[in-house]
């Protein structure tokens, strides 16, 4: 009779038995008592399918449990494990070591976000700017009220915004943005793309309200269409497209 391993046996097992290994350089920084960032190096075995997050968890399990990292779903859905991997913002759970083509993997906290510790950063500003653009349908009536039906929408109308509703608020776009690198007050590509998501929704009636919010010196006009946000988005949201289409509304090219 086959025996299934107990939970204790599973958690104690070593997941990688490969002869291949990489050097994982992890940025260590505690703003409470460190004056600058430093790096610790670990030799981590990996398989073809091993992700960077799994390698970090391997380090936590076998070498140094004090490494601070935020993660949850491990399938690019929760948006928790964004970090700079070999110089570019990526999701650690969505980046395989084998696709980086390097024997040295350097992981750092995302740029343009205050560091809590090591690889974990604060998301307060991202959530604040997200809330600022009113990320919900604005209209006087509601689907919940008795005697009203659900708001109807054609497939074509859905196509106008469905891409932008894939945003998981991981913050990679804000980390890659060159304007965010210098302007602390810029609303950022994440919030601007979400503003477009609701403006383009045929059920929404809050277009003028939202356009007024982003029509600011640190709002949509600070985007210079560098496109880095779209290149790093792990969900295909393409914030650069949303922002330019949104600006089309403001310039009168779209209605």
């Amino acid at each position: 009779m086959a025996q299934t391993p107990s939970l204790a046996e599973e958690s104690g097992s070593t997941p990688f038995s490969s002869s291949q290994s990489i050097t994982l350089r992890i940025a260590r920084y505690n703003p409470q008592h460190d004056s600058a960032k430093s790096f610790m190096e670990f030799q981590v075995p990996y398989e073809k399918w091993t992700t960077v997050l799994e390698a970090i968890l391997e380090v936590k399990k076998h070498f140094d449990h004090s490494v601070a990292v935020r993660y949850s779903c491990r399938q690019a859905t929760c948006g928790s494990c964004g970090m700079i991997i070999n110089g570019k913002p990526r999701l650690a759970c969505f980046t395989k070591i084998s696709e980086l083509n390097s024997n040295v993997i350097t992981v750092e906290p995302m740029n343009n976000f205050p560091i809590i510790r090591d690889l974990a950063v604060k998301f307060e500003r991202l959530f604040d700017t997200h809330h600022k653009i009113k990320p919900y349908l604005i209209r006087d009536d509601t689907e919940i009220t008795t005697n009203t039906k659900e708001f109807l929408q054609s497939p074509e109308e859905l196509e106008q915004y469905i891409q932008f509703s894939n945003c998981i608020k991981c913050g990679l776009c804000n980390s890659a943005c060159p304007t965010m690198a210098t302007d602390s007050s810029f609303v950022g590509p994440q919030a601007l793309a979400q503003a477009y998501r609701y403006v383009a929704d045929s059920r929404d009636k809050g277009k003028d309200n939202r356009l007024k919010i982003i029509d600011d010196s640190h709002g949509i006009w600070r985007c210079h269409f560098a496109g880095s946000c779209s290149q790093v988005c792990p969900k295909g949201v393409d914030p650069a497209m949303g922002i330019q289409l949104l600006r089309g509304y403001m310039l009168g090219f779209r209605s």
Partner: peptide, 9 residues
């Protein structure tokens, strides 16, 4: 703020 600054820009 961990900003990249002009060097990153």
């Amino acid at each position: 703020e961990n900003k990249e600054g002009i060097g990153g820009m």
